[in-house]
């Protein structure tokens, strides 16, 4: 596996960077494995890159629907207690989370 590393489209450094964006963490050997798996997948689909798409518009929606709007009228909100019941941690009727900024070193 290690000798394949530089052939990988997505190197281990990239894996670590992407994992940070996605809020995931991988052990060293997992990162190596993911790097190789993702590279294999992307290489297999590489043919896509050679398709001439110059005159094609990118498609975000398959159906041609526009202007779907709702009237500005209030509907029932959820019962707070029901919502907070499935929260991992609650205090003062709010969702409790640990400190947002990291401790200064």
């Amino acid at each position: 596996m290690p000798e394949d590393l530089d052939k990988n489209l997505i190197g281990k450094d990239e894996v670590i960077k992407v994992a940070k964006l996605a809020r995931l963490s991988f052990e060293d050997d997992e990162a190596t494995k993911i790097s190789s798996e993702l590279s294999t997948i992307l290489k297999h689909f590489e043919a896509m890159q050679s398709v001439n798409t110059e005159n094609l518009a990118p498609m975000a929606h398959s159906m041609d629907v526009t202007n779907v709007l709702r009237e500005d009228e209030a509907t029932m909100s959820l019962e707070r207690d029901e919502v907070l019941l499935s929260a991992p941690a609650v205090s003062e009727n709010r969702f409790l989370v640990p400190r947002i900024l990291k401790e200064e070193e």
Partner: peptide, 19 residues
Amino acid sequence: SLHIGGSGRIAEASKSLVD
């Protein structure tokens, strides 16, 4: 977010409460 602990500022807070 309501920041709890320290002076109530985000940097010093030990936890936060979200509404």
